[in-house]
Simulated assay, not measured.
Amino acid sequence: MTVTTIGFDADDTLWHNETFFRLTQEKFADLLRDHADPSHLMDRLLAAEHRNLGHYGFGIKGFVLSMVETAIEVTEGRVPASVIGQLLEEGREMLRHPVDLMEGAEDCVRALADSHALVLITKGDLLDQERKLAESGLGDLFHGVEIVSDKTQETYVRAFAAHGDGAARALMVGNSLKSDVVPAIDAGAWGVFCPSEIEWALEAAPEPVGAERYRRITTLAELPELIRQLG
């Protein structure tokens, strides 16, 4: 069936994101260097992020709260207020950071906007994702925008029904197998994996090798040709 609707992930698919989280983690480790080994500290932070997803969701604000929680835990409540203040400022700096588009992202989106209905489907904080989309210069090219708390099979069924001809005639591209590819395939759409240089551990998942509607590309520059091949 002809692909008429294309879903795009945002963070680390259209623009860089995880790089800034890693830089902030390095600052976090430096601030707490007298209290915990960096590798152990990152394990504690990842565990905090995992258990807090259900409370804070995805995004910078939940990440900052998890850093604060971890700092309190590893210091047994003795973390200086100045360190907490610095962590909060690092979070504000992340929220102010200019949007840095991935290589080929703008050309890809513009090449497909005239022939397909494009839908941005992303997780994260509502205000932050709206800001990044506005600053990206790509907002006017999307037929619809879905900022969701999580990406599941039902998310894609609903999104592609609302903004296109249904999942059977849709394709989703993103850097996360867990969030962008596997649930989209389960919904009946094509799932295209476009890996980024840095993968968040909580988004790791095995490739759905053998799935009829699974494809993998190296960069977004390859997407228009892949869609032409699919029909």
Rank of each mutant, 00 (worst) to 15 (best):
A168M: 14
I217E: 00
A162G: 11
A184P: 02
G164K: 05
W190G: 01
R169A: 15
A187Y: 00
A167D: 04
E203A: 12
F193W: 15
G191K: 07
E203W: 09
V182C: 05
A162L: 15
A211R: 13
A211N: 06
S179M: 08
A159K: 03
R216I: 03
A205H: 06
A159F: 04
C194Q: 12
G166A: 06
R158L: 14
Y214K: 04
L202A: 11
Y214M: 05
G210V: 10
P208H: 07
A204E: 13
A184E: 01
F160R: 05
F160L: 10
F193Y: 15
W200N: 15
A184Q: 01
R215P: 03
Y156E: 02
Y156W: 09
A204P: 05
E203K: 10
D150H: 14
A161L: 13
V157L: 15
E154H: 10
N175L: 10
S179A: 14
A159Q: 00
I198N: 12
F193I: 10
G174S: 02
G210H: 08
E207T: 14
G166W: 00
A168P: 04
A161P: 06
R169G: 08
K151I: 07
A187H: 03
V173R: 01
A211D: 12
S196D: 13
E207Q: 14
T155E: 05
M172W: 10
A167V: 08
H163G: 09
W200Q: 15
A201M: 14
I198K: 10
G164F: 05
Q153P: 04
A170C: 07
F193C: 10
V157G: 03
D180V: 02
D165T: 09
P195G: 12
I198T: 13
A159V: 11
E199K: 11
S176D: 05
K151Q: 07
A184N: 01
Y156H: 06
A168Y: 13
Q153W: 13
F160P: 01
S176C: 07
R213L: 11
E203L: 10
E154A: 14
V209Y: 11
S176W: 01
S179R: 05
A211Y: 08
T152N: 07
A168V: 14
A205V: 10
T155P: 00
F193K: 06
E207A: 14
V182G: 00
I217K: 00
G174A: 07
D180F: 00
I217A: 00
R169Y: 13
I185R: 03
V192G: 02
N175G: 04
P206Q: 07
V182H: 03
P208W: 03
A167T: 01
S176L: 08
D165S: 06
A204D: 12
A167G: 06
N175I: 06
I217L: 09
I217R: 01
V173I: 12
S196C: 09
R158H: 13
T155N: 04
A211Q: 11
A184C: 02
E197V: 15
E207C: 12
P206T: 02
A211F: 11
P195Y: 12
D165I: 07
V157D: 04
F193S: 08
A189C: 10
H163P: 11
A162Q: 13
A162S: 13
S176K: 01
